[in-house]
Nucleic acid binder design. Structure first.
Lengths: 229, 229
DNA sequence: TATTATTAATATGTATTACATATATACATC
DNA sequence: GATGTATATATGTAATACATATTAATAATA
């Protein structure tokens, strides 16, 4: 049986073991962001390995954003940026088509799911901002400009959700969504019978219920949901 | 202005620059998973740096799962496992409380959002499986056992969604959710007036609409949604 | 001939040593 | 007190050597 992210111990390298040791060490010593850790040589000697190997293990933690190092200042534990890490590997060129489809769906799932957050946190100012965007969208002449304001509209919704992580997550997913849009055969919105425009969505946000909004958003994104089988 | 994930070039180390170069190189050469890349020394020489520095840059890519190396076989480009990377850094001990709250909310958002996927992909077998779980849950004596089947129920829903990434994502979020459950002051389900049980959710899944299900799920998770302000 | 055993070549993994460099600290100078 | 200088320090980079797993070529065997 082959599990994801687990490699057989027999072909584990020394650095792999050092990494595990460090992981336990950080955990057991209850290190928190801001805490400084022993210097490279001390760690290497304490573990009975060369500085080279220790550095390689430390590099892994640095890569993940779990520790940071500065010349002569030593190393400190840091709060990893989950989304940044995701950003670095979410590369359409490298990922399998199925995975891309999964993230494509995830974006739709979130777009519908944030309705509740919106209704808890929306303010009159937010609505006003959305309306301004729609005005600019309608005034836009080129297709590219329209698209720009379309994206801005949805980005603003994410902002209104008050959830920074979800907002950043969505931005991270944008290239994926873009890629899938080009890959899948997606027809234009106007061809849909009961298409819900941004303007209508705002209206629902002002006077409708959460349920209304979700249904509206579903219809607004209908062209994409059709891709799900 | 300070942006996330960007460091001023003046205090960029040489390895940082090597990493960027490699990144461009991989991209421009259109390397795909499975393709092998030049060996360490060649890369180092081509870039005019020591093998040491090159190795450190390569270690970063290895850490992210973008390349893999084997003794004498050289290195090959691999498909990074986005979720695995996330798993390594989603550590409640290290993350800020706000971030944890964000992920807590994200889990709820997804739980509601997958309704559409469920209705597209559910089968009679899936329903049967859910019913079996609920039976076991009701037959369970200890609180721990009940919790286990509760988790199993939701995990199965994710499985039914047919989206492996979302399914794994949810598993990744579990520790966060667990942590938040202990941190926040969450009352028990039974205290809710119009509480919707797993049994009812299944019933909706069988005869109700997507909207019904979403409303049901919302009520089922009411105790958690109350934490959102 | 087919198969196995042995050997040599190869690229990564680890160790050692040395030095560069940014930063902090202490000290000296104005 | 502010500024400049010297020194110590921990990480960053380089160079070199060797260990080790794996491949490929070669030799030995049936």
């Amino acid at each position: 049986m082959k599990l994801q992210g687990i490699k057989p111990i027999e072909n584990m390298t020394q650095v792999d073991r050092i990494e595990m040791n460090l992981h336990d060490y950080f955990r057991n010593e209850n290190f928190l962001p801001g805490d400084s850790i022993p210097k490279e040589i001390e760690l290497a000697e304490a573990m009975g390995v060369s500085r080279t190997a220790m550095r390689e293990a430390l590099t892994r933690f640095k890569t993940l954003g779990i520790i940071e190092s500065k010349k002569n200042r030593g190393m400190v534990i840091t709060e990893p940026d989950v989304l940044q890490n995701m950003n670095r590997v979410l590369n359409p060129q490298l990922l399998h088509q199925d995975t891309m489809q999964d993230f494509f769906e995830l974006r739709l799932v979130i777009e519908l799911g944030i309705a509740d957050l919106l209704y808890v946190r929306k303010t009159d100012e937010d609505i006003k901002k959305l309306e301004e965007i729609v005005d600019k969208e309608n005034a836009a002449k080129s297709k590219a400009e329209k698209l720009k304001w379309d994206i801005e509209f949805h980005a603003t919704l994410y902002k209104i959700s008050g959830n920074q992580t979800i907002e950043r997550f969505q931005r991270t997913l944008m290239p994926v969504f873009d890629y899938m849009k080009n890959t899948l055969h997606i027809r234009s919105q106007e061809q849909t019978a009961d298409y819900v425009s941004h303007k209508v969505l705002i209206q629902i946000l002002k006077t409708g219920t959460v349920e209304d909004f979700r249904q509206g958003m579903y219809k607004h994104l209908m062209q994409y949901f059709e891709q799900i089988k």
